[in-house]
């Protein structure tokens, strides 16, 4: 009888144990919490509430958090203090091993941001069940939004981890209406400059799509260090959050200006 009593006692203790995750079954689970789903759609709604009179605003670009969570929080708090930055774009590698736990930690930290944010998928995010988790938690891999008559196109150019080629047809089609906008900005995790992950043909295809569609600036992460190339289309790589650094892009009429903030 005493044996049964102890088992009952254990069961009760267990039930009242105040763990966030009472039971976990595998690191590879893709069971995204309801509250964490559809982040992209939710943030597009938030962005729609921001109305501007002038063609003069700033947005921030942060990228490659991997597991540098303290730095992510520090950068978020710094961006929060700046009223001139209206929204944030995250350049991929949300996770390091693409575990649900990593996506959840990222999402929890980003809850502290007092502005809308948008993500582009990184190569690390595709591993294991990461692509499933990303789709549930954020939404489409390729998408775009408009703000204050400017277009922002976020493009998935991950090839090895996803076993597919970048959807350049989608990119061309999405940029075809560029004439309707003041400026167009493109974002993809892997850059066509510095990095050799993409094939020569892919890089050339991307480059010509950028030129043909009058893209102002193409912004990337992945290589973890700063790079800037001026041309018909400019290319920017922002350092990883391994450094306490982020990019600020100042958009004014038909011009833009890039600044790297180091904390």
């Amino acid at each position: 009888m005493k044996f049964i009593k102890i088992i009952v006692l254990f069961t009760i203790t267990l039930t009242f144990s105040n763990c966030d995750n009472l039971f976990e079954y595998s690191v590879y689970e893709a069971n995204v919490k309801e509250a964490d789903k559809n982040t992209t759609a939710k943030n597009i709604k938030l962005l729609e509430n921001i109305k501007l009179e002038s063609q003069d605003f700033k947005f921030a670009f942060i990228t490659d958090v991997h597991y540098f969570y303290n730095n992510l929080r520090t950068v978020i708090e710094d961006i929060n203090k700046r009223d001139d930055i209206l929204f944030v774009i995250f350049g991929g590698d949300i996770a390091d091993q693409a575990l649900l736990k990593e996506f959840e930690i990222f999402s929890d930290i980003m809850q502290n941001l007092n502005k809308p944010y948008f993500t582009v998928i990184g190569n690390h995010d595709y591993n294991s069940n990461g692509s499933v988790i990303y789709k549930e938690m954020f939404g489409d891999y390729n998408y775009s939004f408009t703000f204050n008559n400017n277009k922002f196109v976020l493009f998935d150019d991950i090839i090895w981890e996803s076993n597919k080629d970048p959807d350049f047809d989608w990119l061309s089609l999405e940029l075809a209406d560029n004439g309707n906008f003041n400026q167009v900005f493109a974002f993809a995790h892997i850059p066509i400059v510095v990095s050799d992950d993409l094939s020569f043909e892919m890089k050339e295809t991307y480059r010509s799509i950028m030129i043909d569609n009058n893209v102002s600036l193409s912004i990337h992460g992945h290589t973890h260090s700063y790079f800037y190339e001026e041309g018909i289309v400019d290319y920017l790589i922002v350092p990883a959050l391994k450094e306490l650094a982020y990019g600020v892009i100042h958009v004014k009429d038909n011009l833009f200006n890039v600044e790297i903030i180091e904390l």
Binding site: L14, S17, N18, C19, D20, N21, L22, F23, E24, Y67, Y69, N70, L72, R73, K101, E104, I105, D108, I109
Partner: peptide
């Protein structure tokens, strides 16, 4: 990380 607490990482 200061951002990750014990209740985030332990399960039963």
């Amino acid at each position: 990380s200061k951002e990750v607490g014990l209740s985030d990482i332990f399960s039963t």
